[in-house]
Amino acid sequence: MKRPGGSAPAGIRLAAVGFILAGWVVLAWAFHSPRLELFPAPWLVAVRFVELSRTELGADILASLGVAAGGWALGCLLGVALGLLIGRVALARLVLRPLIDFLRFISPLAWVPLAILWFGIGYWSKASIIVLISMFTVVVNTVQGASAMDSETGKASRSLRLRLPQRMEVGLMSAMPDILVGLRYALGAAWGGVVLSELVAGNTGLGALEGYGGQSFDVAQIMVGMLTLAVLGYVANWGFMRLQRRLFPWIIANRAS
């Protein structure tokens, strides 16, 4: 969202940040009650953060990251493989595309109860949801990339008599910009899925941390969970962009934003 007329005035940006903090403090003050803190002030959340980070926060972060990373990696691998298959092989397109067209409408998050019935409460009931989320996001983008391959590139690789692995590499790389967009969207969507499946099926993880906070009316603990999730989501997005720029510098960075 860059405006062509130069960067935004720094004063107004600073005012926005001040507005968030001031609004938070005012709301906390307005809803203050000595018995039940429904809207804890920033410093109370900070205190709760320090308390939690001494006890369970680290383990919860690791559990959430494990589910997210495992599910995302597996889902992306499946998604890219299926997407390339659908994009380049006609027979796969005939069978798989209608199937995905239907399954896409049943949101992966609606599979949570079924995943619990199938896998029980544990790693796979959560990770399978992330696999579904990532797979559907990545498949669609990969098919777009794979079927929109430049015909000149195809001709060039044929006239150079590339062997099959090389031709596959050419196909993969020409689809790469679209695949990467899919991977990044999947990363964001997967993070949401982790929270939700941990809320429902969780005994560990940041979603479970929030869930326990909700059960004991500990709003500060819920907010610690929310903020930790937001920061980790931001870091993951930023890291992905850095890595993409390093590994595939030929992809124009703007396309991804």
Binding site: F19, V195, L199, G207, G213, V219, I222, G225, L229, Y234
Partner: peptide, 18 residues
């Protein structure tokens, strides 16, 4: 813009217990 860029990263589902 900074407001949106900040709150965009708060996962909607993390609001559910709240």
């Amino acid at each position: 813009e900074p407001l949106i860029e900040t709150f965009r990263f708060i996962v909607p589902f993390s609001l559910v217990p709240l």
